[in-house]
Write a protein that binds this DNA or RNA. Structure first.
Lengths: 159, 159
DNA sequence: ATCATATTGACAGTATACTGATAGACAGCA
DNA sequence: TGCTGTCTATCAGTATACTGTCAATATGAT
């Protein structure tokens, strides 16, 4: 039989990945408390800044968000005055998304904080281990890219 | 200067970990569709089975859930008839949690499915890489254990 | 015994994420 | 032109998480 025990749980990749995500988010939020940004909001702002005339569907593919979730994220960013949404001249289905000046300014302030958070996330590792960790994780998400509902699709030209 | 671009995002540990979690959950849910269990629900059931006279607070520490979230998880498990909650004879604040026969049976059915999901999660890796991945992840969550709101605390005796 | 403190379970509020459905708009084809 | 299929944004429903708060209950110190 060999029924699973709590101890077995700790050795399951799914459990470790869930814990890692809990931890990474907590570190990010703590580091970015002064700019009041979540990891997802930060990623959205970065993608919006570096991609002109972006629409929600393309944004969701760029940063691997679920489309259904993205609408709420954008609502919050718009509510905070960090982005603006307007109609597209070409296609009336599309809403174009752009940073406001306030959004661009906040993003500038956020960047060093995010860099610090990322460094803190890798703190348990030596330089070599960190590189190895990143290589393994990159291969993991690349190999499994199609497995989640929100697969990442890199932009055509802009980045 | 050197403003972050979308491409930089892909190389951030936080982003990779978020993607990995998306992927691992998707694989789990697909594998366990026939038993209708989420990763968190499965972990709760395993912990409940292997720990007699468990209460919610101790359970949350065992599997590193947030206590506020755990109440809802237990509500759902109770609604599905998989667990039962009753008062403790010693302490009227505490509700004891136990598996129902239906819960035990479902857990038995779930276990091979979960094992398959865990194997599929590690599929991108060779055996050696998978072991390395697990070692790095284990050290990661152990080192950062205190960083999240729901740090894991292993049980005293039972496991 | 009483009072200060801690613990337990619960709740409201916010944010992320997925499923599935829908309405509006576009594009290619008969 | 009208039909069909596709794409866009959005919504309802469910599940996971975190913050902060609260009342009821225990516990330890006095």
């Amino acid at each position: 039989m060999s029924a699973t025990t709590v101890g077995d749980l700790y050795g399951m990749p799914g459990h470790l990945i869930r814990r890692a995500q809990q931890i990474a988010v907590a570190i990010f939020l703590k580091a970015c408390a002064t700019v009041d940004l979540t990891p997802v909001q930060y990623a959205a702002l970065v993608a919006i800044r570096s991609t002109p005339a972006l629409d929600a569907t393309r944004l969701s593919a760029l940063v691997a968000f679920d489309r259904s979730t993205l609408g709420n994220v954008l609502d919050r960013l718009e509510g905070k005055g960090l982005i603006a949404r307007g109609p597209s001249p070409d296609d009336r289905r599309i809403k174009r998304i752009a940073l406001t000046p306030a959004g661009a300014q906040l993003l500038d302030r956020a960047e060093p904080l995010v860099a610090e958070a990322q460094a803190r996330i890798l703190e348990p590792f030596s330089d070599g281990e960190a590189a190895l960790f990143m290589r393994l994780m990159t291969r993991f998400v690349d190999s499994h890219n199609a497995a989640s509902r929100a697969p990442l699709r890199r932009a055509g030209g802009t980045d």
